[in-house]
Design a binder for these strands. Structure first.
Lengths: 155, 155
DNA sequence: CTAGATTAGTTGGTGTACAAATTAATAGCC
DNA sequence: GGCTATTAATTTGTACACCAACTAATCTAG
């Protein structure tokens, strides 16, 4: 991922930012798993809940935009969350193509448990907050860079 | 993911490093897709090829350690790469439980095309190399932090 | 107003990741 | 040496992500 003189190095696995991103993402998400399991949530489901706690009601389209997930992924995911009793999906009266995704009382109540998670993760990582914020900033910049790429983000 | 006074902020989606990691990873990997598609490779397959170009022969276990993937994921993935004609899997004569994964001539030849990819990605991102290297370092540190967590990494 | 284009969400297909179970081979201990 | 524990890889099951196709609702242009 870096242009260098030595092509042997060019493809070295541990030089690939894409690889580091993938491993980092999977590794951090792995830390969440034991914490989310008692709530019956997978990590992507947790992100959906975060979005709804913050912004409900949301359409599938809005959720997709917030979470960068396509409707094909969200549809069954929301279905499973509905089956868990955490949310409901109803037709939007103004535009019947759209759904209004809202939390159930159980879904809203779950937030109190969920608030314990981020601090627990920070503690498990044992990293300074400043370093995590720094990483966050760097990640936002690379996301913005991918957004700027002409071949990406069909919105 | 940061302990702060305001709990409303605590769960804000755009404050979660795990979310930024996930989106960044997916977004960057998305840039690879059109470049890998002419070679018939998915991104995880590309990473496997990187590992083999660098280190072949490798056992499934070694590939798993390098790529942080479990055998359940690798097994069908390698099978598909074998079907594509890029690698072969043979029993290790010293320990018949283990496989020796080696590249075919076609697999080795693919490297020349693959070398064009990292510079192309850097160009598409339009980011400074130094910034990418900085991000890479930060990612390595968070990966190391997850490795240090007592509840993680059963190796 | 109407027909065609666009949009919202669902469904189906493919390829991962993760977890558990299984089979066969090897290691280690008595 | 033999038995038990451990290990390597495969298979099965579940939940994603991404992509394409489809249906129904809405928008837009003539």
């Amino acid at each position: 991922m870096e242009s260098v003189t030595d092509t042997t190095d060019l493809l070295a696995l541990d030089r690939q930012v894409c690889f580091a991103l993938s491993i980092a993402s999977r590794s951090v998400i792995g830390l969440y798993r034991p914490l989310l399991q008692p709530m019956g949530l997978t990590h992507p489901q947790y992100l959906v809940m975060l979005a709804l706690w913050q912004h409900e009601p949301l359409s599938v389209k809005e959720l997709g935009e917030l979470l960068r997930l396509d409707p094909g992924t969200l549809s069954p995911l929301l279905k499973r969350l509905q089956a868990l009793g955490y949310l409901s999906r109803e037709r939007n009266t103004k535009d019947e193509r759209a759904l209004a995704v809202t939390l159930t009382p159980a879904g809203r109540a779950l937030r109190a448990e969920a608030e314990k998670i981020p601090p627990a993760i920070v503690e498990r990582l044992g990293m300074e907050l400043a370093e995590l914020q720094h990483l966050h900033g760097a990640l936002m910049r690379v996301i913005a860079a991918t957004d700027r790429d002409p071949g990406s983000r069909k919105v």
